[in-house]
Structure formats: C-alpha cells, structure tokens
Simulated assay, not measured.
Amino acid sequence: MRSAVWLPLFDELADPAVVVRLAVTAEEHGWDGVFVWDHLRWRPPVEALADPWTTLAAVAARTSSVLLGPMVSALARRRPQVVARQSSTLDRLSGGRLVLGAGLGSDRFGEEFSRFGEEVDDRRRARLLDESLEVLRAAWSGEPVSHHGDACSLDDVTFLPRPVRGTVPIWTAGFPGKQPPLRRAARHDGFVPVNLEHPDQLAQAVAGIHALRDDRRAPYDVAVPLPVTADLAAFEAAGATWWLADVDPHSITVDGLLGIVRDGPFR
C-alpha cells in the first residue's frame, strides 16, 4: 500500500510556500504522493484558503517523484474545458505525475455551492460530474471534441498538448454503500471512499467495483483517507492500495504535519 500526504489548503496551509516545503519533505522521507483538498470556502474557524491548481503547480516544480493532484475536486462547479487545459498543463509540468480526484462535493461544510449560486441538488451535480469526466477523457485524447450538454458546449476543439501518458488517472469519490458512486468508480481508475468506518465496508465496496469493471486485469487504485492511528494493515487487507493521511483541518498545524511527514509513510 502506498502512502500520501493529504493537505487541506486552509489557514497556515493557504500559503503555497508552506505546502511546497511539506511536499519536498514528504518526498525526502519516502512518501508516494502529495494530494490537496479543493474548496472555495469552508466553515469557521477556517478563514483563508488557497487555490489547489496554483499550489500544485508550485509543488510539481519542486518535486520529482511524488504523485500529486486535487483530491477531490467537485467538477460540477468547474468548467471542464478549463480543467482540461489545467490538468494537461500540470501533468506535463510534473512529468506525468498528476492524478485527478473527482466527486460531487457537499454544501454542508462551507456552503460553497449555495453561496456562489452553484447547483445544490446532488443528482444534478452527479450528472454534471459524469458529463465533465466524459469531456475530460475526450479532451485528453488529442482528437477534436464536439460536445453539447449542461456542463459545457464545445464545437470541434482540439486540446493540445496531451498529458504525458496520453491521459490522466481519475479517482472518483463516493460513499462505499451506495451503488451510483461504485458504478462511476468502476468506469474510471480509482475509488476514494467517503466516511469509511470499517475494513469490511471497504472490502464489500472493492468487490462491488471489481464486479462492475470491464477489464478486471487493468491496474486499479483504492485510496482510503484514514488517520495515522487507524489499523492501516486491516484496510490494506480489505483492498486499499493507497493511504491518504487524514488530518483535522480545524486543529492541524504545520509543525504537526511536519511531524507526521517525518515519521514516514506506512510500509
């Protein structure tokens, strides 16, 4: 099981220079990935937030081996044609190290949909998410894209340059006990379970995803957010391929994160 530092870009971590320092330290100590939260607003006491794409570009420029990406991005509130350009650019800057985490998002943590006039209905956001992922796959192909839907409208547009490996891995987030997120996850490259409580939940979700996949031999990742105190070996046995080191966004400090990073990843 590989390990990643998972950073909420809030308050002290809203400074990209701080995140770069953490990412460089993580790489030096053997971590496999550095992923960041993607939010426009969060509930108090959080006051400051950073943009994930700009921050990740700085991380990409100062690291050489860790995978990186937004984990996860609520694509329903982002224009897919813009994300296509951002993702390809970041992937090339990093030498092909980008992973795109994608999900529905939620209005309950910071009202970041309702306060900006974005879609608050989960089912409509799910349709926008699936449409956006379809557009991204088409854009990364390097072929002309024509698409007319609710998320965007494209008329014979070619997106070049392509990502380094011709595409970007997509890990989709969702509740492990619900079928629509599992069906979505089976169509892509990885799954990020939300609110996971027990390894048995994970094992059941992983089995459900693999039963739905067209090519069960293709590589597939399951990235599980868990605190450092969790029984990581049990979740690895249940099917996790990545551990995302989960921290409390309201209480974590830079010094606390440096301690986690310097203790090293799960092996």
Rank of each mutant, 00 (worst) to 15 (best):
F235K: 09
A23S: 01
A61F: 08
A203T: 06
D11E: 13
E12Y: 11
S87I: 14
S153A: 10
A126K: 01
A126C: 05
T241E: 06
L160V: 06
T253L: 03
P8V: 10
P16S: 11
P163S: 01
A139G: 01
G117T: 14
D121L: 11
P265I: 04
D150Q: 15
I209D: 06
E111A: 15
R165Y: 08
A151P: 08
H148D: 14
R267E: 00
P180R: 14
P199F: 12
W242L: 02
A223G: 05
S251R: 09
R125F: 11
V83P: 07
W53T: 11
I170G: 02
R123W: 06
P44L: 07
G110I: 14
P80N: 10
L9H: 07
G166I: 09
A237H: 06
E236V: 15
A4W: 04
A237D: 08
L68A: 00
S106T: 15
T158Y: 01
F10R: 15
L133R: 11
Q86L: 15
L98N: 02
A84S: 13
V254A: 08
D122Q: 12
G105I: 10
G149C: 12
W242C: 02
T25V: 06
V20A: 06
A211L: 06
D156G: 01
H198I: 10
I170E: 03
L257I: 11
L9Y: 14
E28T: 13
A138L: 05
Q81H: 12
E197G: 15
P80K: 02
V46C: 02
A14Y: 09
A126D: 09
R77L: 15
L128I: 06
L100C: 00
G101S: 01
P225L: 04
G101Y: 01
Q201G: 11
P52C: 07
Q81P: 03
D155Q: 06
V247T: 15
W243F: 13
V222R: 04
P8Q: 13
F266P: 00
I252N: 01
A58Y: 04
G110Y: 11
G208E: 06
E119L: 08
P80W: 02
L75V: 09
P225I: 09
Q81I: 09
P249I: 05
L7E: 07
S3Q: 05
L226Y: 11
R108E: 04
L244D: 00
T253C: 01
T54W: 14
W242I: 10
P265E: 01
H148I: 15
L49S: 05
P193L: 00
A61H: 12
F191H: 05
A151T: 10
V224H: 05
G264T: 10
S65I: 10
V18G: 04
T54A: 14
P52V: 12
W171I: 03
A223L: 05
T167K: 00
D215V: 14
I252W: 06
H198P: 07
L196E: 03
G142I: 02
V145Q: 06
L100K: 00
L212G: 05
S132G: 10
